[in-house]
Amino acid sequence: MDKFVNLVKLSVGSESVDTLIDWQATRAAQSEDALPRHVTRMWPKREPEILQGGSIYWVIKGAIQCRQRILRLDEVIGVDGIRRCAIVLEPAVIRTETALRRPFQGWRYLKPEDSPADLRDQRIDDDSLPIELATALAEIGVR
């Protein structure tokens, strides 16, 4: 498989994976072809690696909780005339193991080997743990 890299980004304002999904369903969060997107000021320097299979891992309430595959990067010019990068995403949101992250600005690169694992299929329909409990378990290395 080709070498790829992921991004990790805070989902500011999201209370849960479900609120992220709800936001992405709004027209304001979509590209012209109705795919979810996230607009950011900076253009990733490692674009070729991202587009070879990378995902964006979303940090919600201090922990990575899900990811989405990155489909493409689109140029967006704001009303202020500034060029921005729209990270266009696959609509499917894949829940992941909880992985703690301290607050940061912008996005960071995330190596595949450092990325949290996707939840196994049989765990997808399990009742979600409260984020506080999931975070506590992640802190002690149980989850």
Rank of each mutant, 00 (worst) to 15 (best):
I50C: 03
R102P: 02
L110R: 04
I64W: 08
Y109L: 05
G54E: 00
P103Y: 04
D121H: 09
W43V: 00
L71W: 00
G78R: 08
M42E: 13
D121T: 10
I60F: 10
I87S: 00
P44K: 07
F104G: 10
P103C: 00
P91L: 00
E90V: 01
Q105H: 10
A63Y: 03
S55V: 03
I60V: 15
M42C: 10
G53K: 00
P112A: 07
T40V: 14
Y109Q: 06
I70D: 06
I70E: 04
R67G: 00
A86V: 09
Q105N: 13
G78H: 05
M42F: 14
Q105V: 11
G78L: 08
K45G: 00
R41T: 06
S128E: 14
E90D: 15
D74C: 03
G54C: 01
G53Y: 03
I82R: 13
L133K: 11
I50V: 13
T98W: 09
A63M: 15
D126Y: 11
D118Q: 09
K45I: 09
L73P: 03
K61Y: 03
E75M: 13
R69T: 12
A136F: 07
V88C: 04
G81I: 10
A136H: 08
L89H: 06
W43R: 15
G106L: 04
D114I: 01
A134H: 06
D125G: 12
V88T: 05
A86I: 08
R67L: 04
K111D: 15
E47I: 11
R41L: 12
